[in-house]
């Protein structure tokens, strides 16, 4: 009785393009996009006196 040889785990990962799609999107989204957006959101607004000085009002 012959058993079908199972592909090695790494080959299964390499061949799973849906998993790779998920990894590609997730790493980019967390490392670049969401983290970057959080940092921009936490940036305090420019103080009014500096803003007015820059705009020459």
């Amino acid at each position: 009785m012959s058993e079908e040889k199972k592909a090695p785990f790494l080959q299964l990962v390499f061949d799973d393009f849906i998993l790779l799609l998920f990894l590609g999107v997730a790493i980019y989204a967390v490392s670049y996009l969401i983290w970057g957006l959080i940092e921009i959101a936490w940036t305090p607004p420019i103080p009014d006196e500096i803003k007015e000085a820059l705009l020459g009002r």
Partner: peptide, 30 residues
């Protein structure tokens, strides 16, 4: 090719290296 999939896109960060709104940690990591 898998390394491209997981790691190449964050390189976009180098366009923001002189932007003040994102931190040095974010810049250096990415």
């Amino acid at each position: 090719f898998i390394l491209y999939i997981v790691a190449i896109n964050v390189a976009s960060a180098h366009h923001l290296l002189v932007d003040p709104a994102v931190s040095p940690v974010w810049k250096v990591w990415n």
